[in-house]
Design a binder for these strands. Structure first.
Lengths: 200, 200, 200, 200
DNA sequence: AATGAATGAGAGTTCATTCAT
DNA sequence: TATGAATGAACTCTCATTCAT
């Protein structure tokens, strides 16, 4: 188990990670075979263990990889001073395009992380709920500023936004023709304005 | 494999179905073992095959069982002449309480149906997309009547509503303290009015 | 994993146990393959797991089986009121014939038990050291009665007797022509009288 | 595979040999991994093959190393003209201290040599039985001289002495507090005088 | 003199499935 | 109606071995 920072190793390790993500995404953790993962990168099954200590550890790494930059991007959004409407759009944009860029790993994080042992799951959970908290905070501050209605349940709203993002993310993964930019706009629009005709 | 209509058989068959649903829901299709399902109803592994031809067939039946009355209920909602707001509430109410009543089976339908072979999947898909179409239609008619704004993308809206329902359904399954009535109201409210302060 | 006391099960289980003992004895625990054990009783490798939860558990059971009646017999010897010379002969006789009757299992107990995990090993150790203590006691009482010389280190003597028994046991296992009765007599004789010419 | 006689190579080769002995002694031949052996001397697994052609060859060399000087020492003992009692003490002393000095290798020779292929085993066997023969001869000559009783079975006696030596050797290896000098004396004493009270 | 990377064979284990009873 | 017993295929994982560098 080489841990050098040599570029050749890192390159192959990354390939292994993405292969694992792809196969986990398609067949689920339990339905995925290490043989299939290995074939994805053109090595023999046993050789996978040069890159992963175990199948389970591969799942851990894929999950972490899946939320890594998706989670980190929200801090950037929270940091900038922008109207809530713009921020919400950015959140959806970021969430949906994460599904495009690391589609498999994100799907795996969403659907398969519960098969990890407690210890690994809680570590991941910490990062994921950081995301939710930041988002909730965004809503709360917008309520304070009067951008959103005062009776809004921010916790509920944040979870719903994440739910919508994940639901569309799932569809995006399966349908390449969907345009994330348009979709993000539609999502933000619906959340902001609702479906009811404005009585202007 | 006796398919007698005797009540005792049906009773046990239902128990087997629910056991399969429970185990599939907890461990996923591939992670579930027939031993675990059998133990759930206090019989031995081999005896399961008296009720199911195969593990896969059990999955098919669980999935069908999972959407059965949830799908059928929407026709009732569509049939009655009611304001859209009431209908949408009813849709969420029906969707979320389905997760309470047949939680395991619905979760399995949502998460595991993709592991079915094409043939079985398309049959289920037909029923599921009937649901979506009816819902889409509900939106379209409300737009026509002027209840909803004219520029609403009804296809998008229907899918989003389903996505929200499933996302909260997932949370409901894991958290017994959530109140489906309140949640349905919040969901409907958000979709209808949006989060933005009405500029009355 | 059936735990019934049905004779047919017990019969096959015993056969499995003896097959495991034979293969462990010949190749050592790590060198033994479950395939080889299964073939010994004419079943397929996977079917072994109907009788043993794991290879390791098979080792535990073989070890327990190996000392079971060998250990229990010494209590009988200790209970009877006999001159020490007769007792010692009985001890050797019992020890060596145990190697004849359960040769494989005893060899496995001696040579492979250290590959068991702590927990299992200590449980076995308790039984084994009960044997040593009883034997030591036999020596001590004989010293008190004046049957043996007063300066004898009974702990040392007991361990040496066991060592001799095991050493010859090992040879017995490999050489069918050795006569355990004669051997037992020789051993007892050597320990009692020593090799030096009596200066009578 | 450079077999240079350079001191640096020999030094490392010796280290590799002792590492192999240590790991074989602890885990048995089949339970030992080349990785573990390599780690013992701080090199990588693949590098071991610079010192050994194969794992099996490592076992051969360890076994040979294990009996090398233990076997050679008995010739010295046999060569000197000494009373049998002194000689026997020297034999035990030599045997037991060999376990102290090359404990791992001796243990490996005793316990693992049977996993070698016939050819290698017979070569080792020759040296081992030379030891036994010399010892047997020592007994025979002592009987002739009247030092030992005439009815002594010298073959039996020699094997028993070796058995005792190995049994205590095994205990010595695991228990550092045992004093080989005292032990050797006790062993010799028991063999010579027996346990029975002399009827002086 | 040593390593990183890979391999292929084999291990132990699980499991859906079958079937005589 | 259900079970005990077995199977065979698949699976994850380990390991001795090789070899270019």
């Amino acid at each position: 188990m080489a841990d050098r920072n040599q570029p050749r190793y890192n390159q192959k390790k990354r390939a292994a990670l993405e292969a694992a993500a792809a196969v986990f995404a398609e067949h689920g953790y339990h339905g995925a075979s290490t043989t299939a993962i290995a074939e994805h990168i053109g090595i023999k099954q046993g050789s996978l263990y040069y890159y992963f200590k175990s199948k389970q550890q591969a799942l851990e790494e894929v999950c972490a990889y899946g939320i890594e930059d998706y989670v980190s991007r929200i801090d950037g959004i929270a940091a900038m001073a922008l109207p809530f409407a713009v921020r919400l759009l950015a959140v959806f944009q970021s969430h949906l395009s994460a599904f495009r860029e690391r589609r498999d790993a994100m799907k795996v994080y969403n659907d398969e992380r519960l098969y990890l042992p407690e210890s690994a799951r809680t570590e991941l959970h910490a990062r994921g709920s950081g995301y939710r908290k930041t988002l909730e905070d965004l809503f709360a501050r917008a309520v304070q500023k009067g951008e959103l209605r005062a009776d809004l349940d921010c916790h509920f709203a944040a979870l719903t936004v994440i739910g919508i993002g994940n639901a569309w993310g799932d569809l995006i993964v399966r349908d390449d023709t969907l345009d994330t930019t348009v979709l993000a706009q539609q999502c933000a629009d619906l959340i902001l304005r609702g479906a009811v005709q404005a009585e202007a």
